[in-house]
Nucleic acid binder design. Structure first.
Length: 424
RNA sequence: GUGAGUGUAGCUCAGCCGGAUAGAGCACUGGGUUGUGGCCCCAGUGGGCGAGGGUUCGAAUCCCUUCACUCACCCCA
């Protein structure tokens, strides 16, 4: 009891692991169906990768990273997100030389030093997918379709897909200035945080929950009115393709992103059952990332799904209770040894059998067999054993019969249907 | 980093305008059936009230400090 897990770092217990395995399985099936390949990236990267990729002045880099010096004195960081690492791997291994278009996905833990709250932990898992090498808006819609399909397959409904365009290097600065000028005239209306944001990153004011700030921005200029011609065309196409693949979305000109590398298409899927951290997933296009980390000019788009958030939305049923095929209740001495021999023999055949190790009373063993929800219980007593037999009790039907111990394995191989054993 | 709330048995929680050995339900163990489960009945194990300090004749109950958890802000998946 003395040593506890580190704050914000959680155990995933056997009782909830089925949900995780389920979501991971669906992710793999859906993504691979869309032509994505899994990639696995290291937990630790050079700090520089994130500083340059995500942006020096972002909150993540400024105050949320687990950064430290390793024993050689290099500054290293536990990955706070996957995109930069995946892009790094793509460049480092020249994956573009095989095919300039790369569709990659990744599932694993990320680390951010934030104050934990509902749906936000210091170690948290993301399901991440990225497409590198295509700037065409078709891919934007394709990626969003895959995302929504995945969420649907996993069983989530009533989600809102929010869509926006953040513009590019050519048009966003112009918008920023315009927004700043607009809000400067309303400075007195803004909360202290927003007055600070006005200087740092005026777009963030859209996220503020203070009433007066909300009022101040009601008539604020919108990004989508400032898009340059290329961005406008791109955005129109994205919407057109989304419609073509049959996806509904909510145009949300106020949705902004916290990572510097995002350009143009930005999207988020929110649920109102999540509390304050209501984004199940977020993503977008990032046509500047590769240049930032020292690569060629390669466009990219992707998303990250928050596993904990997603799982908290999952319906509670669905988890199949796993139950032992057999519980072996032995009475004493010789039967106990026989039980031990049998249990291990069963295990080698992939049949889940349990027994009591403590030499408890039959009643107590039966209770445990019941608690474990064993399908059958084998009662090994001296009398039957002398005849080479034992009592096999069907716990569901409450019936029992004497069987030859030598026949047991055969009996159970028949009883254990193929689906019940581990599915491949 | 800021704010609010909470911290009593393995779990959920009661007790908290101070007062004599700290309670309930569930769980666990044993028994009621010298060899048989789920219901029921009986009995039992288990905490000294997050930690430290203070006030008091006396503190789980009041005060201070600290830690942890939760939610919210910030930000994000």
């Amino acid at each position: 009891m003395e040593i506890k897990a580190i704050r914000g770092f959680n155990d995933i217990l056997p009782s909830e692991i089925r949900k995780w395995q389920f979501v991971e399985r669906i992710a793999r099936e859906v993504f691979e169906g869309f032509g994505f390949s899994e990639i696995r990236i290291p937990v630790l990267e050079r700090t520089e990768l994130f500083a340059r990729g995500i942006g020096e002045s972002t909150d993540i880099v400024e105050k949320e990273m687990y950064t430290f010096l390793d024993r050689s004195g290099n500054s290293v960081t536990l990955r706070p997100e996957a995109t930069a690492s995946i892009a790094r791997a793509y460049l480092e291994h020249q994956l573009y030389s095989f095919d300039p278009v790369a569709k990659l996905y990744f599932i694993g833990p990320m680390f951010r030093y934030e104050r934990p709250q509902k749906g936000r932990y210091r170690q948290f898992y993301q399901v991440d997918a990225e497409v590198f090498g295509v700037g065409n808006p078709m891919v934007d819609a394709e990626v969003i379709l895959m995302l929504m399909h995945f969420l649907k397959k996993v069983g989530l409904e009533r989600l809102e897909l929010h869509l926006n365009s953040l513009g590019c290097r050519a048009c966003r600065p112009r918008y920023r200035e315009d927004l700043r000028n607009f809000l400067k005239r309303k400075t007195f209306q803004l909360c202290r945080d927003c007055q600070r944001r006005l200087q740092m990153n005026p777009l963030r004011i859209f996220d503020c929950k203070v009433q007066t700030c909300q009022e101040a921005i009601v008539e604020a200029p919108r990004v989508i009115d400032f898009l340059c011609e290329d961005c406008q065309i791109h955005f129109d196409k994205v919407k057109e393709y989304l419609q073509m693949v049959g996806l509904d979305y909510i145009l949300n000109p106020r949705m902004v992103r916290g990572l510097d590398y995002y350009t143009r298409t930005a999207f988020e899927v929110v649920s109102y059952h999540l509390g304050a951290q209501n984004a199940v997933t977020g993503g977008g296009r990032y046509d500047n990332l590769f240049k930032e980390i020292g690569g060629p000019d390669i466009p990219g788009i992707g998303f990250a799904v928050g596993m904990e958030r997603l799982i908290s939305l999952l319906p509670n049923e669905r988890h199949t209770i796993s139950r032992p095929h057999l519980f072996i209740a032995a009475l004493s001495g010789e039967p106990q040894k026989e039980a031990y021999r049998l249990v291990n023999q069963f295990h080698l055949e992939g049949i889940w059998a349990e027994l009591d190790y403590e030499g408890k009373s039959l009643k107590s063993q039966m209770r445990r067999a019941d608690k474990l929800k064993a399908r059958f219980t084998l009662i090994l007593g001296d009398e039957e054993m002398r005849k080479g037999k034992a009592i096999l009790r069907d716990m569901d039907t409450h019936t029992q019969e004497e069987v030859f111990i030598s026949d047991l394995l055969k009996i159970f191989k028949e009883k254990v249907s193929p689906q019940k054993s581990t599915p491949s």
